[in-house]
Write a protein that binds this DNA or RNA. Structure first.
Length: 473
RNA sequence: GCCCUCCUGGCGCAAUUGGUUAGCGCAACGGACUUUUAAUCCGUGGGUUCUGGGUUCGAGUCCCAGGGGGGGCACCA
């Protein structure tokens, strides 16, 4: 109780560890700066040696040693009985010890919070992946690289916001609870509104609402936010993840390609000072212009023979069989083509490439290609073998959109749980007129993985989805 | 959802072909030490080996079921 009462409600540090180290690392061994500083942070190590004691204090910016002597510090005994993990504030002169370690020579200190649990082995930290993800608060301290990666994540989002705003986009918010789940092909989470006594879906994409805003007169909008998909968890999938979606009136997918490569390159350059980054031991070059090639060209390249939807369904089914795709009678040639591309080609693409002109069949919200029947003006930006972005010239003809929805409804009746539903309100919006519009979606988590050299999505999500722990005591 | 694999004190790890009271380091607790760097030295306590069954004279080790984790497949971003 006494201890609890003695813990202050605030503490004013005059310096942070990182800044002190940067400023005074030039001191000679045994030399004092003559400056007093107060620092606050967590005790990471403690070495008591009779009438002197050394502690490593870590704050958000780094670590600095605390040096305490019984002669100079009245509460020396209390200092020695600190636990690893305790938060303290300490004040004293900044100087180097005889051994040349920059330290705060503690004249007074105050306990800010007691750590009643330890942060694992002081050398190995916490290794158990289960514990690390369930107790992220401890993981973040025990394994500083985790905090570094998350900080990079938050910074990427921040840079992205600024970059978009500087291009005249405004950030908007649209419903997460939606009566109709649309804008992507995925299974939604379902929840219930009691007062309205109706089911609502957690959004799988903000797309259809953002385009409604364009109908309403917002010409350049973006939203960075969480979407939810009721699918399996894997090293690359979390049920909730963060997407950027943006829409630009009067633009087509060509404009969006230019925007995408410049936007991503701007983020990379601001983070690393260059357009090249190393991912999983290989260099990735984000410098524009990125390669542009059609889905069919790229697939033909890897197959060594011409592959396109012009081959017709039967020929494509044969090609699919050759590469190990088992045919599904509900698929048309477009879906087969996409399957073949994904199976044979996508993973082999390394440096950023715009994979263009998808089959209409698999792109219910994209506008028909201006010159290639059966195709839409859609691209995916593929980096390191994975889709990073998905974009298209938006379909703005309400009649065509209605047909596409109708086809989706059919597919859904046939058992595809990811099919879209008819969205009459969205069609009504289109009937008011959606100007030619280019749209883009970027998976922020995937981008962060690339830029933090992580192959595991869990590592760059602060609190990844997990099964609850079993109830204990 | 399917397949493979892992689960030992707070943390990191051990335990020979199943064989005596399950070891070690860190942390904790007590003691020594006035310039340490994972400080060192002496001492102490702490585990129903994920849970529940089973095989066996004997199970941390083998078998079955369940729980949780990880990887792969499927699905997707």
């Amino acid at each position: 109780m006494a201890e609890e009462l003695s813990i202050p409600y605030r503490y004013e540090a005059t310096a942070q560890a990182g800044a002190l180290v940067a400023q005074y690392s030039g001191l000679a061994e045994g030399e004092s700066s003559g400056v007093k500083a107060s620092v606050a942070g967590r005790v990471m190590l403690l070495r008591v040696q009779g009438k002197v004691a050394f502690a490593e204090l870590r704050d958000e910016t780094g670590s600095i040693q605390l040096f305490a002597r019984a002669n100079d510090l009245d509460s020396f005994d209390a200092f020695c009985s600190l636990s690893l993990g305790d938060w303290i504030g300490a004040k004293g002169e900044v100087a180097k010890t005889r051994r040349g370690e920059l330290s705060v020579f503690v004249e007074s200190f105050v306990l800010l919070a007691k750590a009643r649990r330890g942060f694992g082995d002081k050398w190995h930290g916490i290794n158990d992946v289960d514990t690390r993800h369930r107790q992220r608060y401890a993981d973040l301290w025990a394994n500083p690289e985790v905090r570094t990666a998350l900080r990079t994540r938050f910074r990427i989002v921040s840079i992205m916001r600024r970059a978009l705003e500087s291009r005249g986009f405004i950030e908007v918010e649209t419903p997460m609870l939606q009566p109709i789940s649309g804008g992507a092909l995925a299974r939604p989470f379902v929840t219930h509104h009691n007062a309205l006594d109706m089911d609502l879906f957690l959004r799988i994409a903000p797309e259809l609402y953002l385009k409604r805003l364009v109908v309403g007169g917002f010409e350049k909008v973006f939203e960075i936010g969480r979407v939810f998909r009721n699918e399996g968890i894997s090293p690359r999938h979390n049920p909730e993840f963060t997407m950027l979606e943006l829409y630009q009136a009067y633009a087509d997918y060509g404009d969006i390609m230019e925007l995408t490569e410049s936007l991503v390159n701007e983020i990379v350059t601001e983070l690393f000072g260059a357009s090249k980054v190393v991912y999983q031991g290989r260099t990735l070059n984000f410098a524009p212009p990125w390669r542009r090639a059609t889905l069919e060209e790229l697939t033909s390249e890897t197959m060594g023979v011409e592959v396109s939807i012009d081959l017709g369904r039967d020929r494509l089914a044969e090609v699919g069989k050759q590469v190990g795709i088992e045919d599904d009678p509900s698929w048309g040639p477009g879906k087969l083509m996409l399957e073949i591309y994904e199976k044979t080609t996508e993973a082999s693409l390394w440096d950023p490439v715009f994979v263009m002109d998808f089959p209409t069949e698999v792109s219910p919200l994209s506008r028909d290609h201006r010159s290639k029947p059966g195709h839409v003006e859609r691209f995916e930006a593929v980096v390191a073998g994975r889709e990073l972005a998905n974009a298209f010239s938006e379909l703005n003809d309400p009649d065509v959109q209605r047909e596409r929805f109708a086809h989706q409804v059919e597919v859904g009746r046939a058992g595809d749980e990811e099919a879209m539903s008819m969205d009459e309100d969205y069609l009504r919006a289109l009937e008011y007129g959606l100007p030619p519009t280019g749209g883009l979606g970027i998976g922020i988590d995937r981008l962060v993985m690339l830029l933090t050299d992580n192959s595991q999505i869990r590592e760059i999500i602060a609190f990844p989805t997990m099964r609850p722990e079993q109830e204990r005591d």
